[in-house]
Amino acid sequence: MRRALLLSAWLLAGAAQAAISVEDGAGQTVTLARPAQRIVSLVPHATELLFAAGAGDKVVAAVDYSDHPEAAKKLPRVGGYTGFSLEAVMRQRPDLVVAWRDGGAAREVERLKRLGVPVFVSHPLQPGDVALEIGKLGRLAGTEAAAERAALQYRQRLAALQQRYGGRAPVRVFYQLSPSPIFTVSGKSYIDALIRACGGVNVFADLPVPAPQVSTASVVAAQPQAIIAADGAALDMWRRWKALPAVASGALFTLSDDAVSIPGPRLVDGAAALCGRLDEARQRLGLTAR
């Protein structure tokens, strides 16, 4: 009997020490011998993902603009959008670093890996990837239960928006990222997926890059029924084009850049705001649900 108990205890101990492996956004396997206790986040959206995954108390440093949730504002800074200090990161003695595939510090990230620091590369391409990464980061941090709850809640809210708005009358949308030069989003951007979830049709969905530059003439030719930008100043440039359906009906809307520019758990809040703008456009255009 005693031998059986000892064997069970040994097996349980072995299970507790089993390595944790997940595939990151770059398709690489990240393996930890035990749950991470000291995590450095090198991109603001990853900071939000970690807190959502229940690992906020394990995050020991972050980069500039990691200001959500409130507790993230108090974290030491190791860099910003353009790069980070390798020395500052290493001073934190991290057992996991979360980086961004599209960030501007690829060389420094590779140096971290050569120094033996496990790196999870975050790369959420679609809204659903947010929930996937919350779950993966939760596994790496040993907070899987909390992470799965947050991921499920996110998925449920996103699905509810799709069910509520996805079947409504389509609205042709021009989503403006910047006014000069004019940048927008294509079908390769997760923002396009949000537009579609709200029943919208992105007028530049067919362009080949996620954030293409377009001309004034191409926007006018696309005849959008709604124009959405981060601020009113960007919308003013279109008011002289009276024949544009969006201008004629007054379907020019602002949407906080922060609402949809950060692919983290708050993305579903931005999606809800976007759906509301498109529903208002339908009312102004006199469209009815199909």
Rank of each mutant, 00 (worst) to 15 (best):
G167Q: 05
C198M: 01
A251C: 08
A99Y: 02
A217F: 09
L267I: 10
A246D: 04
C275S: 06
T216S: 13
L194F: 01
L50R: 07
V203W: 09
D236V: 10
G135A: 13
R111V: 12
Y190L: 03
G142K: 12
P265W: 01
H68G: 00
Q176F: 05
R34V: 00
G104A: 10
V40H: 11
S85K: 08
D129W: 00
A205P: 07
V220E: 10
L50P: 00
M90S: 10
P35F: 07
R111D: 12
A281E: 06
E110L: 13
P224S: 12
V247N: 12
R3P: 00
A141M: 10
I195Y: 00
T82L: 14
S180R: 14
K242T: 11
L255K: 05
Q92W: 08
E108T: 15
G103S: 12
K58F: 00
P179F: 06
K188C: 00
Q162V: 13
L285W: 07
R277I: 04
V201E: 15
L115C: 06
S261D: 13
L278G: 12
E133N: 02
S180M: 07
V117M: 02
D192Y: 02
W10H: 02
R91A: 15
D236E: 15
Y175M: 04
V43L: 11
V130H: 04
L75I: 09
S249G: 10
P265C: 08
A141H: 02
V30I: 09
A233P: 00
R2V: 14
P212N: 09
A4V: 13
G200R: 06
G83D: 04
D257T: 13
R38N: 10
S122W: 03
S180L: 10
Y65A: 09
E144D: 10
Q283P: 09
R155W: 01
R277F: 00
R240V: 08
Q17G: 01
A289F: 00
A71K: 14
V97Y: 08
A211P: 00
G103N: 05
P127D: 07
G128M: 03
H123M: 06
T184M: 03
M1S: 14
Q153L: 12
G56M: 06
G276I: 02
Q17D: 03
A221G: 06
P208A: 11
A160W: 02
F204I: 03
R114T: 10
L255R: 03
D129G: 04
G286S: 04
S256N: 11
L32S: 12
L115E: 04
W238C: 04
Q153Y: 06
Y154T: 11
A211W: 15
V219R: 14
S215Y: 03
G79F: 07
G79L: 07
V201Y: 01
T47L: 03
G232T: 13
R149G: 03
V203Q: 07
G83W: 05
Q156E: 15
Q223C: 06
V268S: 08
G200D: 02
